[in-house]
Amino acid sequence: MTVSWTPHRFSGGVLALDAANTVVLRGDPERSFDRFEQAVELPRFAAAATGFRADELGGRRVEVEDAEAILPTVISIREATDRLFRHAASDGSVATADLPDFLRACADGLAGREEHVGMPEKPFGDPSTPLALEAALAVSALSLLSSDNLRRLRICPNCNWLFLDRSRNASRLWCDMAVCGNRQKARRHYHRRKEEVSHV
Score class of each variant (00 low, 15 high):
168 R>S: 13
181 G>F: 11
45 F>C: 01
101 D>S: 15
103 L>K: 06
155 I>C: 10
42 L>M: 03
195 E>K: 14
145 L>A: 09
190 Y>K: 11
187 R>C: 00
162 L>W: 08
49 A>G: 02
162 L>A: 06
163 F>S: 05
18 D>S: 05
62 V>H: 02
50 T>G: 04
143 S>T: 10
129 T>D: 05
33 F>P: 08
117 V>M: 02
87 H>V: 10
70 I>H: 02
175 C>A: 09
2 T>H: 08
100 P>D: 05
18 D>H: 05
150 L>H: 05
24 V>P: 13
116 H>G: 03
71 L>G: 05
60 R>L: 06
46 A>P: 02
11 S>K: 04
193 R>L: 15
10 F>R: 01
160 N>S: 14
31 R>C: 10
132 A>I: 05
85 F>Y: 15
148 D>K: 10
171 S>F: 11
7 P>R: 00
72 P>N: 01
76 S>L: 08
164 L>S: 05
20 A>R: 08
25 L>W: 14
10 F>H: 02
143 S>I: 00
145 L>C: 13
167 S>Y: 12
118 G>H: 08
45 F>M: 02
109 G>F: 10
86 R>C: 10
47 A>W: 01
81 T>V: 12
170 A>I: 15
155 I>H: 03
186 A>D: 07
178 A>S: 14
75 I>N: 00
198 S>L: 15
46 A>L: 03
30 E>R: 12
61 R>Y: 00
155 I>M: 04
16 A>Q: 05
115 E>H: 09
20 A>I: 13
130 P>V: 05
167 S>K: 10
138 A>P: 03
18 D>L: 10
56 E>N: 04
21 N>F: 07
6 T>S: 14
177 M>L: 12
126 D>S: 04
91 D>N: 10
120 P>A: 03
16 A>Y: 06
189 H>N: 11
15 L>A: 03
156 C>V: 07
65 E>P: 01
51 G>T: 12
141 A>I: 10
104 R>Q: 13
55 D>M: 11
57 L>C: 07
30 E>W: 09
63 E>K: 12
59 G>W: 07
12 G>M: 04
190 Y>L: 11
78 R>N: 09
106 C>Y: 08
139 V>C: 04
17 L>E: 00
163 F>N: 03
12 G>I: 09
197 V>W: 11
13 G>Q: 03
195 E>A: 15
95 A>D: 15
161 W>K: 05
129 T>R: 14
92 G>S: 09
8 H>G: 08
28 D>M: 09
13 G>C: 04
141 A>T: 08
157 P>K: 04
145 L>S: 06
147 S>G: 04
73 T>N: 02
191 H>E: 15
51 G>Y: 06
113 R>K: 13
118 G>K: 02
179 V>T: 13
121 E>A: 13
124 F>Y: 06
178 A>V: 07
170 A>P: 01
124 F>G: 01
83 R>S: 12
147 S>D: 14
77 I>G: 03
97 A>E: 15
89 A>K: 11
50 T>Y: 09
44 R>N: 06
13 G>D: 06
162 L>Y: 11
125 G>N: 00
108 D>L: 14
15 L>F: 07
